[in-house]
Design a binder for these strands. Structure first.
Lengths: 359, 359
DNA sequence: CTGAAAGCGCTAACAT
DNA sequence: ATGTTAGCGCTTTCAG
């Protein structure tokens, strides 16, 4: 059996309480005994038992992240922020992947087992109402990322305005025949981006051609995938003659798929079709995508910060943090026809943060 | 305070032992008392305290994965296999990202804290010898993925033969002026793939032109990155006139970067330069990369299986599982000049598994 | 400042 | 079949 504080107490000829105090850097220990204890502990290669600590302290120093599984680069980049921040504060991260909608419940249940985690970061999925209640009672800090529920802290991006900005960029380049490819509208971001798109056209009194709006019915990844983008573009191409001169696409990965479909038909971006997408995942740069940047890494870090804050002040009103996505102009929109790609024309100004307490 | 077995024992007028038995589906409980207990538990919304269970049972039902951080798609695909398998057996996954070599120690230390996890999956990094010893003593199952140490179970890919196959494919297409771009040779896979490349040329008595071998000195991600590939190709292009007609590149991501660099010079793949790379990440298909497929998802699942097996039989000799990567022919090598991409010409035969007990 | 003792919530061996 | 009890390893009063 492994070394316990009893072992080291015996060796150091002190009580276990003292040993405990030493490791918790409690002030009431003389320098001599502290050093004596530490010496023995080192000699015996003592390591505290995390679960015993957790049980006694009534906290676990671990957070859970529940993610609709991370084959999606968007999540990975957020997750990276989460991971770095969590380990920087000495906590552990438990990862729950949700590959199928049916698994949401299971994941929620598993991570909310009593004493399992001190906080939960919940990604992108709509939080079932049954759990909203349950979690409120649980009294464990929860923060929502890329999704919203009025009872919890949330970190989101202004999808509506982002979509509007993207569309207006296309309009400003002279396009009037503009289409959109959006992910499954079961997903809130997809739905809202579509609304933003419509609003932008309306604002500029451009007629919406419903034929040029392709709404993905792919369920896998809610249609935020290369395949979904590819299929959607195929469909748009199939519809015949009046291909729009510009398309707003609800995510970078979809745009990449869409570009493939265009290439197959011998069509070029931006010459034949201009494209603006959303997210600015790392690959967007490679493809020269003009896109709406979401500060993913930052969002991940903030999620962790917010959980920590929430632990300290459980009764504060839910906070809603909303980021304004930023237009990153590269080649796919046709605004810059200079060198092929790899170069990135974004102005590296700081992301705007809009932290507004929820009413 | 939350509900404990004491609460439910009192309510159901039974002993805590009985309650415990019910939840552990111990046979010695009558149907009536079982149902009574279950009813009360449900009414009170009882949830077992994971840490208390862990402490009493002396096991945690969680595994840790230590990954050189997953901005690399290769790891993500393995991790996905790991994640799915782990949750399918009802375990939890703790994720330790290692972003900097200095953090390896810290991660190792943290996940090997006593009673923290029941097993560790260690990815791609060379295991420091100090820890090899320490972990042996720890008596906790450890499996290495994409890296090797003779004292532990490991799951790897035949890098040498894979590189050889890739190179020979290029040779079989008639190329004789073949170059290679490899990641940082601090990484074993990068180094071994380079050796395989050399061996293939030698076998076919083709002279090695050292100028056409670019070894990345990028340290970030050990040079397995788009940027590293881009820079390496730039360097190769800078060297002047004798660009090889074919290049073997040590990973798909690097190949993607390299292709960017070629495009900037107006060079086309495979017309001007044929390319074969390694890994077959999801994106490889999109780029039409001919590549050596590693069964990443499978490797992840297997890692979990092996940890479980190792728990059952701690004293068995270390197992070494080696996969033979499979050549997937797409467009980048020039063997098929048919349609642009998206289509995948691989024969979907099963991956070969070579499980050989270590000596 | 330090030792002893009482939990933390659960499991498992031991009685009955 | 069920209740009782002794841990699991640590934290944290409570005396002294």
């Amino acid at each position: 059996m492994a070394i316990t504080i009893y072992d080291i107490a015996r060796e150091a000829k002190v009580g276990i309480g003292t040993v405990s105090r030493v490791f918790n850097s409690h002030p009431n220990v003389t320098k001599e005994t502290r050093e004596k204890v530490l010496a023995v502990a080192k000699r015996l290669n003592y390591q505290p038992h995390v679960y015993a600590q957790g049980l006694a302290r009534q906290r676990t120093n671990t957070f859970a992240a529940i993610i609709p599984f991370f084959t999606n680069y968007f999540f990975i980049e957020i997750l990276q922020g989460v991971q770095e921040k969590i380990s920087s504060i000495g906590f552990d991260l438990i990862l729950h992947g949700v590959n199928h909608p049916d698994e949401i419940d299971e994941s929620l249940r598993r991570s909310s087992r009593r004493g399992r985690v001190d906080g939960i970061i919940f990604f992108s999925m709509r939080l079932p109402d049954t759990f909203a209640k349950k979690w409120k009672d649980l009294e464990i800090p929860i923060v929502l990322v890329d999704t919203f529920h009025e009872e919890f802290d949330s970190i989101t991006v202004e999808n509506f305005q982002g979509a509007q900005t993207a569309t207006e960029h296309l309009i400003s380049l002279g396009h009037t025949n503009i289409g959109m490819i959006t992910a499954n509208v079961k997903s809130d971001p997809a739905r809202i981006r579509l609304e933003g798109f419509r609003a932008a056209l309306k604002k500029h009194t451009i007629e919406v051609n419903e034929r040029n709006i392709i709404v993905s019915d792919v369920t896998k990844l809610d249609g935020f995938s290369r395949d979904a983008g590819y299929l959607a573009m195929k469909e748009m191409l199939k519809l015949g003659t009046s291909l729009p001169t510009a398309i707003f696409i609800s995510s970078d990965v979809q745009a990449i798929g869409a570009i493939s479909a265009l290439r197959e038909k011998g069509l070029r971006v931006p010459d034949d079709v201009a494209i603006v997408s959303f997210d600015d995942i790392e690959l967007a740069q490679h493809f020269g995508l003009t896109t709406m940047r979401q500060p993913m890494h930052r969002m991940g870090e903030l999620a962790v910060d917010q959980i920590v804050k929430r632990k300290q002040n459980p009764s504060a009103l839910p906070i809603q943090m909303r980021f304004m996505p930023e237009l990153v102009v590269r080649q796919s929109c046709g605004a810059k026809k200079i060198s092929p790609n790899i170069e990135d024309y974004v102005h590296h100004k700081d992301i705007n943060e809009v932290a507004a307490p929820h009413d």
